[in-house]
Design a protein around this nucleic acid. Structure first.
Lengths: 199, 199
DNA sequence: GTCTATAACCTGATAGAC
DNA sequence: GTCTATCAGGTTATAGAC
């Protein structure tokens, strides 16, 4: 039951965000009523925190293992990252919107969650690995934050603007998924332009 | 008084978004009470629409006049666009968040507003101008939507993630504005990589 | 564990006095 | 025009019966 609640809550929270999600709706979708919800997670906040942790775990660590594979060319690694996120985001297209909306509401939510989940260690490990490649001249020396802006900016933009995309940027006979495949090589090309060293 | 309300409402709406803004707060900031607010704009919706129109006018048309200046190299035009948006966004750092949040809430809001403001004509004019440059081989032939994703993805990312940036991505002695100046050449380089034809 | 009932509060909106 | 008073509806959360 607790799992069923978490899963349902996750769906609704991702769809509507914290502020516009009501306990009533979650309860209704689960098939119980409000007081029963409060029995499992005493407050809306505590329930959200539980959900948020699961969501972060589904997003953040994905990138680490791929980034540190130094035997692979950067273009190949980027392609793997894009593929991995495409799979995740096609199942949850509102995830990027959810993440930035909730970070905007309260940064500490993310910071505390990441800390609790012991992610900073793996985070630093991945960053160090990239930094070392830059120092060795195998990648261009670009501040990490700009690598972040580039990758997530390009990756999330179609999803952040998906309603607009559907209304204005897609041809009649075209679907979102096809467009993403067309977009993929541009992401890779841009990341290579940013990071790849001429041989 | 009506202007004072609009300006105050704009500040609060941009800060918190439609859903989390209450009429009480706007009234309190203006220095009157709720019923007085409802006297000027009968409903919260109508008030928001008025504010939203002003905001769209401050964002969307800026890009048109710059894009159609075909005598200027694309890198120069991009730099002008970045400078223009930097000025606007440094005054209103939450504007990108506001726009995508409200579009996500209801796309038709943007579509209707843009239509009412007679912007589609100028929009099409700018697009046609760019498309013609592509057909003439003066720019690479890139689908317009990908130009949009690139430009706005790179431009808005620092602002969308500004809280995270302040907490994790800035050095101690560094401020946001300095970082943006450092970021600017990367935006230009990426847009050139996307659009510029080798000579 | 799950329910009914209820408390306490905040929201947008309106009626009517001044 | 701006106020007080009020309405109807929504919210989270809890107490207590079963």
């Amino acid at each position: 039951m607790e799992n069923k609640i978490i899963n349902t809550a996750m769906t609704v929270f991702i769809e509507k965000g914290y502020a516009e999600t009501s306990m009533s709706e979650i309860a209704a979708r689960v098939g119980i009523n409000r007081p029963a919800l409060h029995y499992y997670f005493r407050t809306k906040d505590k329930m959200f925190e539980a959900v948020f942790g699961d969501i972060i775990l589904s997003i953040v660590p994905k990138i680490f293992d791929i980034l540190i594979q130094r035997d692979k060319k950067i273009g190949v690694r980027i392609e793997e990252i894009v593929d991995t996120y495409y799979t995740l985001l096609l199942e949850n297209p509102k995830l990027p919107m959810f993440i930035i909306r909730e970070i905007n509401r309260d940064v500490n939510l993310l910071i505390n969650t990441v800390t609790k989940l012991n992610l900073p260690n793996r985070f630093i490990e991945a960053l160090d690995s990239i930094q070392e490649e830059m120092n060795e001249g195998k990648l261009k020396n670009v501040p990490i934050r700009f690598v972040f802006y580039n990758l997530y900016g390009l990756l999330s933009m179609p999803f952040l603007s998906q309603d607009l995309t559907h209304r204005l940027l897609l041809q009649d006979n075209e679907n979102f998924e096809e467009m993403l495949e067309e977009w993929k090589p541009y992401i890779i090309s841009q990341m290579e332009n940013l990071l790849k060293v001429e041989e």
